[in-house]
Design a protein around this nucleic acid. Structure first.
Lengths: 339, 339
DNA sequence: GTTCATAAGGAAACCGGTTACCCACGGGAG
DNA sequence: CTCCCGTGGGTAACCGGTTTCCTTATGAAC
């Protein structure tokens, strides 16, 4: 039974229950000092009226709001959606809402835009997705504004403000898998400069190759920009080499897809002539032909933990000691050709 | 120059400028009745203090907030991201924020969850993405709650609360393209029951086939569920027919990708032996081999218009008379084999 | 010299909650 | 019989804006 034309307010509840606002507020906030009898009466009136506290009024009185902002500049739609899902799982049952705030890296006004956003909304917390969270000026801005923030990152950092995967280890594992399959000539399509994830993945690649005591000519590493086209171009360079790599690890799935296209254009069969591994497990990976072996980033659980860290106050959030990326084995890897 | 430890308030500004709150409020809201001299003085103090009005306080006093909610239940991450982008473009420069609220169709508590969300937040407006916006109970709920809403839809509806593409026409056009290429045996992988888009696309398909006076055995239409796997299964059924279709229109890209896999598994070459068209232009389409001819849904501009309708009050939003989906021609269509 | 319209701006109430502070009451200790 | 304390709950101020209503100064009209 709702009053038409406008929500019931705390005053309505107080009046109908014959108590003061304060008492109603106590009921809402589960304060202890309350008679059982009174509490029941108030709760009944609340139910009858369908009363819901006004979040704006609450925010004003409490001098804090219940907004978690997702700040991102990530071209990978699926990853962003996963993070949104994880965040929402993390705040489920609480009164927090998720607002999204894309930014444009490279835009000269990015920092000013972000500052204006934070100053205006004063969100309770912000989650910084990579790659924007890898930018020190962005983190410094949050700190300067006194805005609590958590970064998702490919490397460990301050535990209070970081949830970290371990891209380097994940890549070492993926490349070891290629080695196990018998590959000795392994190439790499690296991500762009300035991306922490790209640097980590490359480092992991180089460590794994070194650990297996394989040769690594400079020319077997081609740099791309995380795009399909750049993967294609990198593929053209790598596949024209002689001898050419029998396996290539790509720093993301987009580039791996481009690489596979380049291979096909040269009449090379994947995985018979060339094994390929990507990173991210985007929808593309599963639907490519052949289905792409790739590394899955635990984006949902990382985001869930990030949400808990943001809203969890000071108490420790129980957290996996490490977010493990997992190798998803599909059909794009096989032993090298006999040649 | 900001006061450390807390934003400046309207009271601080008023005090430093030697005026009343009301006058500051007038400056903020560009009220006319103000001396040039006073306005300048206040504006200078605002700048010095870095004063930003508190949105919660504003929301409370104005009895309305500045939240636009995106309610969706769409498995296609790229489409959701496009809609987010379009919404943000539409509200750019205003003080609106975008909150996202995924729902789970099929969950028995979906309506209750949505009701709780709307009653709690009282968002200024909500955008209902398909398929959840196609559900009458959801629309009825918004109406009952007095919550302004706009649906994105594959068919026209009440102009005040609908932005509509014309899927039927877009599909007719795509199928005509197959006919022009010389195809006479054209099949269809339809979307699941209960999806407006699926019904419209199927209707468009059937209309185009009828207009070209082609035969359409029942068996040439296979129903899927918009997933890759269902596309694969549909492909298995369609491709075992004899004679089999030389071209197939799929109601979305996921299923088209599944169909292409099924074709390849049978040793069929796309497009030499089979032409395929999808719908949505997801990233998968461009990265598939061969790159998939598909229909691009104008999601960004539809969402932008939807945002304007939501925040635009009563005045008419200038709007394309129709949002045109465009046929993206890639390599998955060719003339039929000679046989 | 009045009267009156108008411009400029202030005082106070209000939006819907939370909180600092106070009061009334009842029971046990001294 | 007081005193004191814990319990249950009310009063009023406050959060930071907006709005209603009112006052004052000014200049034009009569």
């Amino acid at each position: 039974m709702e009053r038409s034309g406008g929500q019931a307010t705390i005053n309505d509840v107080a009046r109908l229950a014959g108590v003061s606002k304060k008492t109603v507020s106590r009921v809402i906030n589960r304060s202890a000092l309350l008679g059982e009898e009174t509490r029941r009466r108030v709760e009944q009136v609340i139910a009858e009226l369908g009363y819901v506290p006004n979040p704006q009024a609450r925010a004003l009185a409490l001098r804090r709001n219940f907004l978690i902002a997702l700040v991102h500049d990530n071209p990978n739609a699926q990853t962003v959606m996963n993070v949104q899902q994880g965040l929402l799982e993390g705040v489920a049952g609480s009164e927090f809402e998720l607002v999204v705030r894309p930014v444009r890296r490279g835009s000269p006004t990015m920092l000013d835009d972000l500052r204006a956003f934070i100053e205006r909304q004063r969100p309770f917390g912000v989650l910084l997705m990579p790659p924007v969270g890898d930018l020190p000026p962005v983190v410094d801005l949050c700190r300067a504004l006194g805005c609590r923030h958590v970064r998702m990152s490919a490397v460990a950092g301050d535990p209070a403000s970081t949830v970290a995967s371990n891209d380097r280890e994940a890549v070492r594992h993926a490349v070891s898998y290629l080695v196990e399959q018998g590959h000795r000539r392994i190439g790499h399509v690296a991500g762009p400069d300035g991306f922490l994830s790209a640097a980590e993945r490359r480092a992991g690649f180089e460590e794994a190759v070194a650990a297996a005591e394989l040769a690594l000519p400079r020319s077997w590493i081609a740099q791309g920009s995380y795009t399909f086209e750049s993967g294609q171009e990198a593929g053209e360079r790598l596949l024209d080499l002689s001898p050419r790599p029998t396996a290539i690890f790509c720093a993301n799935d987009e580039m791996a897809a481009g690489l596979v296209h380049a291979a096909r254009a040269r009449g090379l069969d994947v995985p018979r002539d060339l094994s390929v591994i990507g990173f991210d497990d985007t929808p593309i990976a599963a639907h490519l032909w052949p289905p792409l072996t790739t590394v899955r980033w635990p984006s949902i659980s990382m985001a869930r933990t990030a949400a808990l860290k943001l809203i969890g106050g000071e108490q420790e959030v129980e957290e996996p000691s490490r977010f493990l990326s997992t190798l998803i084995r599909r059909a794009s890897v096989a032993p090298p050709p006999a040649d």
